[in-house]
């Protein structure tokens, strides 16, 4: 299939979004009550933001909801019925940034491993991803370090690029073509000059990253061969407040717990986000806790994200360079800081 390269005028974009709204639920970044951008289901074509700082909460919440009901159980007298809950509503994720598209690709690869996770894959199959390339990198992003941006070379259904007066739209799948097909009259094939302009924008964007960098390769070498001192993990662990924020805002974190909600003979089994930084994450009923110390838990987190062992298993490093952990971590034990400390063999307090 030859990808389509089209353009659409900015004044027509609301009309296209209107057509998308008719084909399914549309989720897009909108302006929140405090002025921040947040991914939210939209009702009208004017709501989506087209220039925004990437929302703090990644769109993974729509694929792996924080509380995700999986089974409905009813007990009526002696009869117990177990009914799986399916969610396969068609959804369109509009204006998702390249790093988050890569995050979703990571989650999908991971949930496709045998035995595959049917509930995630069912939801994913009904998602259309319309990415908006970052012609201006965000302040804290370092996606160039993990090959997740600022432009995508694949993995999207449609990728939009802001060309000033128009958006360039590249399709990456049949779902993408269908999304454009809802309002194909608004699009016209891109000219050579427009394609060249997109390439120029990508080259310029690559050169405009901020201060954050993350040299995964050398950190990976040390973590994978366990040449990071336990004392360093302990020292960094001292800065962790065990809030779990890093896990919840990370586009590639997927760990969960399962809990029952409800009562009176009627309840739901729910998958709920969990954090490997919590002390009880690995606690067994016997009292045995393989990772009782914060340093041990931090070591585990970064081993999963950065080691070669998990690079092979997951097909990528568990970091897409979105920079959200830098914003959220009060202790400063975010990805670039930890990777730098591993390379330097010292935490910053020294």
């Amino acid at each position: 299939m030859q990808p389509l390269v089209l353009t659409i005028a900015k004044r027509d974009i609301a009309q296209w979004v209107g057509a998308l709204l008719e084909s399914g639920k549309v989720i897009a970044p909108v302006r929140g009550p405090c002025g921040e951008a947040a991914f939210c289901r939209i009702e009208s074509p004017e709501e989506p933001l087209w220039e925004f700082e990437n929302p703090l909460a990644p769109p993974k919440q729509f694929l792996l909801p924080q509380t995700d009901p999986i089974v409905a159980i009813r007990r009526n007298g002696g009869v117990t019925t177990v009914a799986p809950i399916y969610d396969d509503a068609p959804r369109i994720l509009l204006n998702v940034r390249p790093c988050d598209v890569r995050g979703i690709a990571f989650l999908t690869r991971m949930h496709e491993m045998e035995p595959a996770d049917a509930s995630y894959l069912r939801r994913r199959a009904n998602f259309t991803l319309i990415a908006l390339a970052c012609h201006v990198p965000c302040r804290l992003g370092f996606c160039v370090c993990s090959d997740s941006g600022p432009f995508l070379s694949g993995g999207y259904d449609v990728q939009l690029t802001d060309l000033g007066e128009r958006y360039l739209a590249e399709t990456g799948s049949e779902k993408g073509e269908a999304a454009i097909g809802h309002a194909s009259g608004l699009f016209r094939p891109a000219s050579e000059e427009e394609v060249a302009q997109r390439q120029r924008l990508e080259t310029v964007a690559r050169g405009r990253f901020g201060d954050q960098t993350c040299h995964f390769a050398s950190a990976m070498r040390r973590i994978s061969t366990r040449r990071v001192d336990d004392a360093l993990w302990e020292q960094m662990g001292d800065w962790c407040l065990e809030c779990g924020g890093c896990n919840f805002i990370c586009p590639t974190c997927y760990c969960f717990s399962v809990k029952d909600r409800g009562g009176d003979g009627r309840w739901t089994r729910c998958r709920m986000w969990d954090s490997c930084q919590y002390g009880a994450f690995t606690l067994e009923a016997s009292g045995h806790n393989p990772r009782a110390q914060r340093g041990e838990r931090m070591k585990r987190r970064f081993f999963h994200k950065v080691s070669a062992q998990y690079y092979v298993r997951d097909g990528a490093t568990g970091c897409v360079g979105c920079g959200r952990c830098i914003k959220v971590c009060l202790g400063g034990t975010d990805m670039p800081a930890v990777v730098a400390a591993i390379r330097r063999r010292a935490w910053h307090e020294q």
Binding site: M110, D117, D274, R300
Partner: peptide
Amino acid sequence: ERNMKCAVGFCGHCQ
């Protein structure tokens, strides 16, 4: 032995 929630390699507890 490890704490487990899913038993199929998704939940991350038994890493």
